[in-house]
Design a protein around this nucleic acid. Structure first.
Length: 716
RNA sequence: GGGUGAUUAGCUCAGUGGUAGAGCGUCUCGUUUACACCGAGAAGGUCGUAGGUUCAAUCCCUACAUCACCCACCA
């Protein structure tokens, strides 16, 4: 005991983790009590964990460790995600560096290489999770491509297809030319650009457009029905000179046309503009259908003309020149500011294209009780519902509570405006769509139904599988798990994937099981650098959590990510902050060292002096406060209060004052008992936040593990 | 265009209807046998602006300003 080192040694952390893991207490099968479950958001298996993962894992671990100490049967189920498009993009960048491209490979070769890449990263990711101290149950570790998971994903697809909630639609979609796939609206963003606005003559009209190159795909002209200037033309067919000869276009009236914009006349190009596509949908009977003039590589698709094969940007230049030569351009406004839709990954302009994709109907009503999906669903709902309504209802009536509360409004707003979700992607890396075609026939099957059948070439949007994560992970480890642990208690994740993931999990969960997948959604913010800048590789301000751990220890990082971090708020992280908590870890170590060295002969039967009773009374108050905060998921304040108490009350005052009390025979015994009580209680309270240093201290004098000690309640 | 959040000490942020707190930083002092990854102490804020409600507002209400973010089919 006398030879406790004067500094806390972080390098022993991995030994402590091994001790816990081998104890079996990460596995709920070895625990009793009421279940408490968190499903870990599966980490993308394409790169080592970043500091955002560290934040999430820390918060989840705090919750789990606290609940375990409360005596619950805690399950924290870890997992990794194949992360379809994300991983494919990462891997293609790697190929590019090597001077290769997936288009020089067969799809099978590519898949095999990505598979190996992901297996390697999966391992690295899992080691990272361990280093952060995550007390999760590795025996239930799950990967999104595990065959049993894929089976459930297929099962859901089959079910939803059979009731018309999943359908194939040939409609306009967001096409990324670079990634060669369609994207959901959520996977695109808008950037402001200044482009020339061309005023082009169309027979008797002049109209404004930024995309003259799409004029070959025009199928109509549109004006606002209230626009008196053009009233007489509505329903008429006008003739105009085009670059490829004369054209005839019908003039239609549509509310979507803004009289104030340009000249109040719009060309309708349904094949290459979402708004125009919608106009066509409303006027299907009056005007011809979409006419495609741009292909999936972003090149003009006009065989037999001089424009064929030109990239869109080049085509725009040449078409403009030709229009000018033909005297068809009235004027050009060079400073037109507008928003352009781009790919969220590469920033390239989205090329809207029409092609068949699979969709999930979010607002379509279906008779819930008639699906034969399970007793829960049948008994609770027998009315007509849509996936959207189910989700909205669950959050509104508190079945699922969103933290922070303000994000509930954001959730509702998004749900109210939700559109059908494109669930298929042209990505090669992913779960293949289990659909086969032969002529007009369609069959849903994992394997080929026989000769002459070809499989749908697409894969699922990653969120289609991860959206089913809460029940899927619990179903693949035996029926008992699902019964015991579903619905789960908490889903802890970043607010940035509230729509991508959380909303979909809620809807999938309700559809498939009749119950919300989790009671509380705890949404953490974004970790930023010390100057509150977003971390990004290009800025070079990315904090590597494993590097920080090497330097300051896991506990220090965990505290830096916890103190002052309220749900939904972004968190600036600086080295100074982490260093501060490294110092705190050392403070814990040394205060413990003092107490342990001076209380070897303490006696639990000692009668406490009034002074020491008062100290323990205050400690009891602290326990009450901290417990209340923990139950409210307010870890920011719980950790801050503990920090303050341990350092400035326990170490600075109680321990300092104990030095004279220990020296006096009359108060020595009472002081010893008081000190050891305060220390051990503090270690327990601190354990969820700083598991390593607290367990290290505990191990100095105990044979059992701190990890399963009972959370302090009554001190006597 | 719609929406949300923020605006409190040099910095990062808590907080409460009754004239403000923490951490870090700064300054002064201290080589005390747990710890210098330390201790004792100090300085530092008209709580964004203008109104309103109230006996009383930093906290409630209304505008405004600035910043940040989210959503959205301006051709």
């Amino acid at each position: 005991m006398k030879d406790i080192p004067t500094h806390y040694d972080q390098s022993k952390e991995s030994e402590i983790y091994k001790l816990w893991e081998e104890s079996g207490y990460f596995n709920p099968d070895n625990l009793t009590g009421e279940p408490f479950t968190i499903i870990m958001p599966p980490l993308n298996a394409n790169a080592p964990p970043h500091v955002g993962h560290a934040l999430g894992l820390t918060l989840e671990d705090i919750m789990i460790r606290y609940q375990r100490m409360l005596g619950k049967k805690t399950l924290w189920l870890p997992g990794t995600d194949h992360a379809g498009l994300e991983t494919q993009v990462v891997f293609e960048k790697k190929l590019e560096k090597e001077g290769r491209s997936r288009f020089q490979m067969t799809r099978e070769e590519f898949y095999k290489e990505v598979w190996d890449f992901v297996q390697l990263n999966k391992h690295i990711t899992e080691e990272g999770i361990r280093r952060l101290g995550a007390s999760c149950d590795w025996s239930r570790n799950t990967f999104t491509l595990d065959p049993k998971i894929v089976e459930i994903v297929y099962d859901t697809f089959r079910q939803m297809h059979s009731v018309g909630l999943i359908y194939r639609g040939n409609r306009i979609c967001n096409w990324c030319v670079k990634h060669q796939t369609n994207l959901a609206d959520l996977e695109t963003k808008y950037i402001e650009r200044t482009d020339p606005l061309y005023y082009i003559k169309y027979g008797p009209f002049v109209l404004a457009t930024v995309r003259p190159e799409t004029k070959f795909g025009d199928t109509a002209l549109a004006v606002n029905p209230k626009d008196l200037r053009y009233k007489k033309y509505i329903g008429q067919e006008i003739e105009a000179m085009g670059l490829l000869g004369p054209i005839k276009l019908k003039v239609i009236a549509d509310e979507a046309v803004d009289q104030e914009f340009g000249t109040g006349v719009v060309k309708v190009t349904p094949a290459h503009d979402p708004a125009d596509y919608e106009i066509w949908m409303r006027h299907k009977d009056e005007i011809p259908g979409p006419k495609q003039v741009i292909d999936s590589r972003g090149k003009m698709d006009l065989p037999g003309t001089k424009y064929h094969g030109l990239k869109v940007a080049e085509a725009r230049k040449i078409v403009t020149e030709d229009l000018q030569k033909a005297g068809l351009i009235e004027k050009i406004d060079e400073n037109y500011k507008h928003n352009v839709q781009v790919c969220y990954k590469c920033g390239n302009i989205i090329e809207p294209l029409i092609m068949p994709q699979w969709y999930m109907a979010m607002t379509k009503k279906f008779r819930v009780g008639s699906l034969g999906l399970g007793d829960n669903l049948k008994s609770k709902n027998s009315n007509l519902q849509s996936l959207r309504d189910m989700g909205v209802e669950a959050v509104k009536n508190g079945g699922t509570k969103i933290m922070p509360e303000r994000l509930e409004k954001v959730f509702m707003h998004w749900m109210e405006n939700i559109r059908d979700w494109p669930i298929s992607r042209k990505t090669w890396w992913g779960i293949p769509i289990p659909v086969w075609y032969k002529g007009d026939e369609i069959k849903i099957s994992e394997t080929s139904p026989g000769d002459g059948w070809t499989q749908d070439p697409d894969t699922f949007d990653t969120w289609f599988s991860s959206g089913q994560w809460p029940y899927a992970t619990l179903m693949v480890h035996g029926e008992k798990d699902f019964e015991t642990f579903y619905p789960t208690q908490v889903m802890e994740t970043g607010w940035d994937i509230l729509f991508f993931w959380v909303a979909r999990m809620i809807m999938f969960g309700l559809y498939k099981t009749g119950e919300v997948p989790f009671e509380t959604v705890y949404l953490h913010g974004l970790v930023r650098d010390k100057d509150k800048q977003k971390m990004s590789k290009s800025k070079g301000n990315v904090v590597d959590p494993l590097g920080v751990i090497d330097q300051f220890g896991v506990d220090a990082l965990r505290m830096a990510l916890t103190v002052g971090n309220l749900p939904g708020n972004d968190l600036p992280l600086s080295e100074d902050k982490v260093r501060g908590y490294r110092n705190f870890a050392n403070k814990i170590w040394n205060a413990s060292r003092f107490v342990l060295q001076n209380t070897e002969d303490f006696d639990t039967k000692t009668k406490l002096t009034p002074d020491d009773q008062k100290i323990l009374g205050e400690l009891a108050e602290l326990v009450k406060d901290i417990t209340k905060l923990m139950d409210k998921y307010d870890f920011a304040h719980a950790s801050e209060n503990l920090y303050h108490y341990f350092w400035h009350t326990f170490a600075d005052k109680i321990i300092e004052e104990s030095k004279t009390k220990l020296a006096s025979p009359g108060t020595k015994k009472s002081t010893q008992l008081m000190l050891i009580t305060v220390l051990e209680t503090s270690l327990k309270l601190l354990h969820p936040f700083m598991p390593f240093v607290t367990e290290s201290v505990w191990q100095q004098t105990h044979k059992d593990l701190l990890i399963i000690q009972k959370w302090p309640k009554d001190l006597h």
